[in-house]
Simulated scan of single mutants.
Amino acid sequence: MAKILIVDDSDMIKKIVVGTLARGGHQVVEASNGLEALERISSTHCDLVITDLNMPKMDGIQFTRELRKMPSYKRMPIFILTTNPAEEEKALAAGANLYLKKPVSSEKLLSSIDKYLK
């Protein structure tokens, strides 16, 4: 079981992803934007992050860049989950490990997590 931070400004998307992660046996920490996610992650260790790309206050690209500056999170897997396929190169250059297009199937999400956490 991994502790996974899900960062998305959509409550509906968070609910779907949290349900998938819980069914996969994972513990979930939630945030609604990058700034809130940085606060959450500074007080609790996570094994993997799944973040949306377009969010208020701090988007997924900037959040990924900021997270990669933190010594304990330089190598932690970061997935960007978004509806915007045009930003894949930018997300990967910022430090994301995987770029997944919404909607992503539960099977694809869980198998990707397993692959990166082994």
Rank of each mutant, 00 (worst) to 15 (best):
residue 50 I to D: 08
residue 12 M to I: 11
residue 68 R to F: 07
residue 6 I to N: 10
residue 117 L to A: 09
residue 110 L to I: 03
residue 118 K to P: 07
residue 72 S to Q: 13
residue 68 R to H: 08
residue 14 K to R: 15
residue 99 Y to N: 08
residue 63 F to E: 05
residue 100 L to V: 02
residue 96 A to K: 03
residue 26 H to L: 05
residue 93 A to N: 07
residue 21 L to T: 01
residue 26 H to W: 03
residue 118 K to T: 14
residue 74 K to H: 11
residue 94 A to N: 12
residue 17 V to R: 01
residue 89 E to V: 02
residue 39 E to H: 11
residue 9 D to A: 10
residue 43 S to K: 13
residue 16 I to M: 05
residue 60 G to H: 08
residue 77 P to H: 07
residue 37 A to N: 06
residue 88 E to S: 05
residue 33 N to S: 11
residue 92 L to R: 10
residue 83 T to Q: 08
residue 45 H to R: 15
residue 40 R to Y: 10
residue 2 A to M: 12
residue 77 P to M: 13
residue 47 D to A: 09
residue 69 K to A: 09
residue 36 E to C: 04
residue 108 K to P: 00
residue 94 A to T: 06
residue 8 D to T: 05
residue 108 K to R: 10
residue 26 H to I: 01
residue 85 P to Q: 13
residue 116 Y to S: 09
residue 38 L to I: 06
residue 61 I to A: 09
residue 109 L to G: 13
residue 55 M to P: 04
residue 20 T to C: 11
residue 22 A to N: 12
residue 75 R to C: 07
residue 105 S to V: 00
residue 48 L to F: 15
residue 18 V to L: 11
residue 113 I to W: 01
residue 63 F to I: 07
residue 46 C to I: 13
residue 24 G to P: 01
residue 70 M to V: 07
residue 42 S to I: 00
residue 33 N to Y: 06
residue 102 K to H: 04
residue 43 S to E: 06
